[in-house]
């Protein structure tokens, strides 16, 4: 038995290769008998061809180096590693690359600056790191062995869905975490990690941010570096005394996982 009751829905299915082969002849006959439907089908085919033509060139473009580098694990030049994110740029976000200028900028009257949330965040994260990473026995309040409780507790206190990133691929294991004050009224979570050689890094996360920014920061007097990012609603910093490239890798991995956790 052949089908004869086709509809507009079948035009789409035929176009998208979803119409069963045995129905094709009956469909074509139906199309011939319905000029209006035939015109519609022809129009959709033409629109699709135009769309394909408009996008065809993309496949032939050379792949940008930055995309290859992500996959191959080669860290791109630092400036481009912290590129403006597509959606932030879309939101016309202000990007600040503080870097070595941090100390200098901090000396300028704060009224003259657009916002100092990023400096404040980096300074607090570094202060916490300097204070607690040096502690052998009392570095954390909740140890990594109690990971689930740690995550729930800090999430509740900080007000963000916090998932302690897995940094094993970067050579770091979670030591544990603690709750800290942040800003004027807020709270921050600090997660401490350690590698096989005993080198420690910390993640500082707070939900107090109302700014959007990212960059790196080191105190004028030297010491550990902070790689930070602020999005509307939360802020994070990764602090440590690692070679910049390694710190950047760790930060990227931590950032990806934190973001995935927060938005999940």
């Amino acid at each position: 038995m052949t089908r004869s009751d086709f509809s507009e829905r079948d035009i789409h299915m035929a176009l998208d290769g979803e119409l069963p082969g045995e129905e094709r002849m009956a469909y074509d006959a139906w199309l011939e008998a319905n000029p209006e439907m035939k015109a519609k089908s022809a129009r959709y085919i033409a629109d699709r061809a135009a769309m394909r033509a408009a996008l065809a060139g993309v496949m032939d473009e050379p792949v940008p180096a930055r995309l290859r580098q992500v996959v191959l694990g080669e860290a791109p030049a630092k400036a481009s590693a912290w590129r403006s994110r597509w959606w932030l740029s879309a939101a016309a976000a202000v990007m600040l690359a503080v870097g070595g200028l941090g100390g200098y900028v901090a000396g300028i009257d704060s009224v003259a600056r657009g916002g100092d949330g990023d400096d404040q965040l980096a300074e607090q994260a570094i202060a916490a790191h300097v204070t607690y990473a040096a502690e052998k026995r009392h570095a954390v309040e909740v140890p990594a062995s109690d990971r689930d409780h740690l995550q729930t507790w800090l999430s509740n206190r900080v007000g963000l869905k916090l998932v302690a990133p897995d940094l094993a691929a970067e050579g770091f294991d979670l030591v544990g975490g603690r709750l800290l004050p942040a800003g004027d009224q807020g709270k921050a979570a600090m997660l401490l990690y350690e590698d096989a050689k005993g080198e420690r890094i910390s993640l500082y996360v707070t939900a107090e941010s109302s700014e959007t920014s990212k960059g790196t920061y080191t105190a004028e007097t030297g010491g550990p570096e902070a790689v930070y990012w602020l999005d509307k609603g939360y802020a994070c910093a990764v602090v440590g005394s690692l070679p910049p490239e390694r710190l950047s890798d760790v930060a990227k991995s931590a950032y990806g996982q934190l973001l995935a956790g927060i938005s999940s």
Binding site: L55, M59, V63, V70, V71, W86
Partner: peptide, 25 residues
């Protein structure tokens, strides 16, 4: 798969740099 991802991103966002940022993410 990168060329295809770039094409899909371009159709979603149109502007080249924004599309490549999405692919990088």
């Amino acid at each position: 798969e990168i060329p295809r991802l770039r094409r899909y991103a371009r159709s979603l966002l149109r502007e080249r740099d924004s599309a490549d940022d999405l692919v990088q993410d």
